[in-house]
Design a protein around this nucleic acid. Sequence first.
DNA 1: ACCAAGCGGGG
DNA 2: GTGTACGCTTGGT
Length: 811
Amino acid sequence: MPTFHFYPIDITYRIVSGKPVIYLYGRTKDGQRIAVADRFDPYFWAIPQKKSVKERLENLSGEKDGESYSVTSVEEKKKRLLGKEVEALKVTVSQPKDVPLVRELIREWDDIQSVHEADILFTRRYLIDKKIIPMTLVVVEGEEGREESRIPVIAATAIRPAEDEETMKGLGILAVDIETYYPKGKGIDMDNNPILMLAVHGETISRVITWKRFATKRRSIEFVQDEAALLHRFREIVLEEQPDIITGYFSDGFDLPYIKRRAEKLKVNLDIGADFSGISLKKGMDTESKITGIAHFDVIKFVRGGLRTSIATDSYSLNAVASKLLGETKHEVELDDLAEVWDKRPEKLEPYCDYNLQDALLTYQLAEKLLPNLTELVKLIGLPLQDCNRMSFSQLVESFLLRKEGEFDEIAPEKPTEHELAKRRKVRLQGAFVHEPTPGLYHDLAVYDFRSLYPSIIASHNISPDTVREADTLEEGAFVVREEKVAYSTAKKGFIAAVVEEVITRRMRVKDILKKKKDPFLEARAMMLKILANSFYGYLGFPSARWYSFACAASVTALGRRYITETIEKAEKAGFKVLYSDTDSIFLSLQGKSKAAAKKFVDDINEHLPGLMELEYEGFYPSGIFVSAKDNKGGAKKRYALLREDGSLVIKGFEAVRRNTSVIAKEVQEHVLKAILEKADDKKALNYLHGVIKGIREKKLAVEKMVIRTRLTKPISSYDAIGPHVAIAKQMKGKGIDIAPGAIIRYVVTTGGGRIRDRAKLPEATKQSEYDADYYINNQIIPAVEKIFEVFGHTKEELLGKGAQMRLLEF
DNA sequence: ACCAAGCGGGG
DNA sequence: GTGTACGCTTGGT
Ligand SMILES: [Mg+2]
């Protein structure tokens, strides 16, 4: 019997002669594309009320809407439900579609207590039970069968994960991007507007296909007869390239559905799937595009999903994400003119082809860059790339728990009913602890934070839905969270606490290896482990979670508050002064104590912290400034600036790090912060400010410095409140330029009467004499520095130079 | 204050 | 498909 070593990348199932067969698609170790067919039977769990129900279940079969269903076997198994031992029944049915039918039927039976895991997708159940992890080596025994398929199908007689968990490397990625015809101002219309060009970029190909000829020396541009021929070429390229991954940017909702629709319209057979199927759309609130045998990596879904908290961007456009992650941008062309150029001036099409190819290239580079992270997530969660790509944090956690439960003999609690869901949505969790800063300039600060505060609390205090006890429990060793009137058993490690502990310790091991040598794959693994660990707290409070527990989620934040306040008390007792604290971080003033003492403080704390909990010394800062909040005397949260020992600045929350502030206001703010933090020289900063104000008044500063950038978040027509950026977008539209939502609108406020929005102008159309000095001084610069100077007792009048003039007059 | 509806990305 | 995203903003009441 031949043996195959292969990496599965995609999975599906089919009914063959009435029986379900799993199809794994992937590549062998030596690069051959193969499929593996394996029989597998669907099942779920039932908890009986009476033992006699087993026989009743065994004999269950019937018909619904002309389709028959049947239970093929029922097996008794000792399992655990939230830690409690139960006599569960493993109910095997003949086909996956029987599961929901049998499930609904028996839920009504009096002798059934509850039904579990009757909604786990069949292919996922297979991967879990067979311990198969996508993109990770699998050993298959079997013969090649004769099936209608683009690639050989091995009928498996045995399948098991390889010992060494080796990861798939060198995957073939093909990036796809299309540009389509659209008359100005009209929305996307897949039925009526053709695809004009289609760009593909891969390791061995970089090409634009288009169907209007023009003179060009570009070897990357390929001309075809018409749109149908373009689609044929796309099919050919995919079949030639045999990519493991097709990637795009919002290709779930745009490129692939568009290609599919046009192919249907033009009767082009797009049978690019391994089983000769085409692009399939899974429609819901959102569309997911799939191709059998190929993983579809939609970059935007990963950036907005699993990586959301790790990549800070206020826009998820390809341009914004590419410039953030790659330092590269899209080409600049007037896309709104493409239809007109196509119709009337085809000789001007070349820049559009270049633009199209650049989009494909950027997407390819993004996919390549993010693939280590996505691969590690696939290995961690155990689901195909196609799924991990699109999952939210809570879905990732739940999938991970479903993969882990077997080790604990656990079966998953039921998903909440609509009623239960509504109840869960009503309750609110109390948030984290915040010590408001007192506005001021401080010297010699030490900053600390608890490493992975919430995950370490879960692991160290055995916070888990299966360890929850009454607050007055007599159980020995139970840990009471008096704040939430609940206790946690310590007799046995809880399921979720154990899983979180494993994630944290795995990450610590990876970090240890990384200290010795750099490895981008291990970096990615550490990052994904951190993301997963940090998702558990949110999961426990996520209404749709199977392992939802309000008590656990509330206890996590309560303990977070408890630990941080206790640490602050100890710091004050030791002679430090707390300046600011939020959730898991503490900013202390050294009060004359040494840097060494500041560093040693963590040891005194860590000595008394349980389990995996640890306070980390983040660093020493020679100076820092906290300012007051907008409408209150107290200090603002998440808004401060620190000076590092190497002279660099850490700026949080200030306009200087926000987009919709003018260039000049950001510049002034950063300059003032630097002068104050470096030399505590508010006079010098004030002089600088006066210089800038004078420069603006005398129009000596360039228009470019006055530019304000604001993002258009929706179509112009749907704005009711017309801000200056909307007014500008309207003007541009009036000139025949259609501005799409997501566009960053640049504008300058000019002099004249009336509302700001009536005085906003395009920077390119504004002369240096035209910008409104008063607006920039009073509405941009002063608000940006007012709170900073307030710390030194400087009034707004002084900032404007009026105070100084008065003083001059006094002499 | 609360709730329902809309929206993102793509052309 | 053993199925129905999600989190935030906006506008109405
Ligand atoms: Mg494009």
